[in-house]
């Protein structure tokens, strides 16, 4: 079972006051700490678990600069067999479509039975790469998956749907699956893992090598402006001791029909 996992390094934004950049096209990232996207952490863990159970290989891929190799080294330390980074220069010129083009160009030449991506990335939360890649590579797919079982030439997936519904699908391999958080409990990185990772292959490819031109990567979506929504009126602040606040809250929720 050969599995390719697409991962992304994202800024940690918890408890951070984000500041919009001068061009109003994004947020300032220079003071932020970066980590492996949470969804991708589950995806790489799931791939490694399947490898440990069924054999095969796990390859982690990212598109980004040298700093982004940090998340690939993490994947290798967790147990991936090799990693590929695509050096694509200024990343801000790509939309999800461009990233999908690049990733697909790498993946199509690799041996694989499964391709994993996280459901979405913590930074811009578009959630597009997985499904667009399935289309680009003409692969069967299953999204927002919370459980995976391998069957002969197939994969049985459980997905989370709205309203607490579950959905079980059986998909023929090869397939692309987008992984939901909570599917497993990602392992900690061990010192031995870090040591082993240093000896594993981390390949760097550039766009020319992949045969994709800037023209093909031109964005389909162009960000006009990023802004903070204006503060609106109408918030009601409840005060008093906790018992009174709870009572008032229940009364309001009941009146508005949220609770019965």
């Amino acid at each position: 079972m050969d599995i390719v996992v697409c991962v992304k390094r994202v800024p940690l934004t918890e408890e951070v006051d984000l500041v919009i950049d001068a061009q109003k096209k994004g947020v300032k990232k220079d003071q932020l700490a970066f980590v492996l996207n949470d969804w991708d952490n589950y995806a790489i863990e799931e791939a490694i678990l399947l490898k440990e159970k069924h054999g095969g290989t796990v390859t982690a891929i990212t598109v980004g600069n040298e700093d982004d190799e940090e998340v690939l080294r993490r994947c290798l330390a967790m147990g991936a067999d090799r990693a590929i980074r695509v050096e694509a220069g200024d990343m801000s010129r790509f939309d999800s479509f461009g990233i999908v083009k690049i990733l697909s160009q790498v993946v199509k030449d690799l041996p694989y039975d499964l391709v994993f991506t996280g459901v979405l990335a913590d930074d811009d939360s578009y959630g597009m790469v997985g499904m667009m890649m399935a289309e680009e590579l003409n692969l069967n797919h299953s999204s927002m998956v919370t459980a995976i079982e391998l069957e002969d030439g197939k994969v049985r997936t459980t997905s989370e749907l709205e309203g607490g519904l579950g959905e079980v699908s059986v998909v023929d391999l090869p397939a692309l699956i987008t992984i939901q958080t909570g599917i497993n409990e990602p392992r900690y990185v061990s010192i031995l893992g870090i040591r082993k990772a240093a000896k594993k292959e981390l390949k760097v490819m550039d766009l020319a090598e992949l045969g994709v031109s800037d023209g093909e990567l031109a964005p389909r979506a162009i960000i006009e402006e990023v802004y903070l929504p204006p503060e609106t009126e109408g918030a009601q602040i409840l005060t008093g001791d906790p018992d009174k606040i709870a009572g008032d809250l229940v009364e309001i929720l009941t009146k508005k029909g949220v609770m019965e």
Binding site: E69, E70, R73, R74, S190, R195, A197
Partner: peptide, 9 residues
């Protein structure tokens, strides 16, 4: 790089 990875871990 290895020391940075140890710190993160």
């Amino acid at each position: 790089k290895e020391q940075k990875d140890i710190v993160s871990a």
